[in-house]
Amino acid sequence: MRRFGIIATAALVAVLAVGLTTWTLAQARANDYTMVGVVVAEENVALEVEDQLRAEDEITVSRVLAPGESWLVVHLDDDGMPGMRVGLVRIEEGESLDLAVPLDEQVMASNVIVALHADRGQRGVFEFDMDAFMRSPDKPYFVNFEEVVVIVSRE
């Protein structure tokens, strides 16, 4: 029983030490971790979009490398953050070139944001709610804690 006590105490101390270290490190970068979507390695994802004309009613994505079935989502630019969703196209896994994403309405904004989301819930149904970020299956892809997005300037 004495040996058990020593082992248990040692285990507790170890757990506390590891926990405290992790907690301290985590606190320092907590914001980086709280809203992370589907994590993917840099070489497995790509999103390339050229600047485009404002008059167009679609956004053309030059190249996309999707790590799985995915969605190309076009948002209005809300002060540098993805705002209202104005375009949505489902794409298959792998590389696609020159994809056109139709916009829902005539978008007069000078900038839009194109993001790449996973399609992981019900296939073909875009299930993402910013207010229930963690529980949404179709979260955006992240590389190195950065969301895979391109801000597209429309002239």
């Binding site: 589907v38 994590v39 390695a41």
Partner: peptide, 18 residues
């Protein structure tokens, strides 16, 4: 997130931290 990042780089594919 740390585990998902590690998996993405080692195993490949996409990993939802949730």
């Amino acid at each position: 997130v740390v585990v998902a990042t590690w998996l993405a780089s080692v195993v490949g594919g996409a990993w939802d931290p949730h």
